[in-house]
Design a protein around this nucleic acid. Structure first.
Lengths: 138, 138
DNA sequence: CTAGGTGCAAAGGTTTTGCACTTTA
DNA sequence: TAAAGTGCAAAACCTTTGCACCTAG
């Protein structure tokens, strides 16, 4: 536990972020449980539940700082809320419509044929594949 | 011009929508110029510029009605604004980060290998591919 | 005439910001 | 003790809603 915190502290420091109590707690929640897809609201509630009172504003700020530092990624799946993904490796997502749930696509041999070239003066920053799911009618 | 309006009126009627002045004008703006990617705000401004005063609320309502009717599609590219796409055929997009611009991927032989199965009880509603672009540094 | 549509303004939800206070190094 | 981070509340967005008025069939 102390070890885990030390690891997180080091990681934050490496990203140029001061390891404050709030950032350590949030990073801990984010990375302790494997890959996660969270909204600001959800992380805020988890932090409160975990006995770490953090203001919503700080959660916003922190998640954006983590994003800039490349520790997490923003997912654009739905236009009302911002989802953050703790898995920054190259992978793609299911999105369950109606339930607003993001899932990793498990066995990732998904590939794209004939990926187009970027227009002149542009380069590809990232390719997102989102497979939208709906509940099957019985 | 009268012809075009008649066409649009018929189309709206077929979708169960009364062809009101506002809906005709908006449909006209949306479909007259080929495939487009617009926000509510942009369409509202275009309508005003075209001398068709329409309230923002009506643009929102109308675009949602058109979406439900299957005339247009919602694009989730960026989490702050909703983009609507007038091209409902199966195709994908570039998104220029920083400039917040949506472009169709032109020659569409893009294909996905090993598309995963939907989890139990779910079916695939739609697959979105978004290629995020950034300006190349010289 | 009447069901449906529109406009306005107000409310709702998410995200950002300003500023005083606190904490880290 | 500086410099950076945090919390609160207010503000800034984008979007939806309620209700009185208008309009197409």
């Amino acid at each position: 536990m102390a070890d885990a915190n030390l690891e997180i502290e080091t990681r934050l420091r490496d990203c140029g972020l001061r390891p404050t109590r709030q950032r350590i707690a949030l990073a801990d929640l984010l990375f302790a449980k494997g890959d996660r897809h969270l909204t600001v609201e959800e992380l805020h509630e988890e932090a409160s539940a975990a006995g770490v009172p953090v203001s919503l504003a700080t959660v916003y700020n922190t998640l954006h700082q983590f994003t800039e530092a490349g520790m997490i990624r923003v997912l654009a799946v739905e236009s009302s809320k911002t989802y953050f993904d703790t898995n920054i490796s190259d992978h793609h997502h299911f999105f369950v419509e109606g339930r607003n749930e993001v899932l990793d696509i498990p066995i990732n041999n998904l590939a794209i044929d004939n990926l187009p070239k970027a227009p002149d003066g542009m380069e590809i920053a990232h390719v997102d594949v989102i497979i939208r799911l709906r509940e099957k009618k019985a």
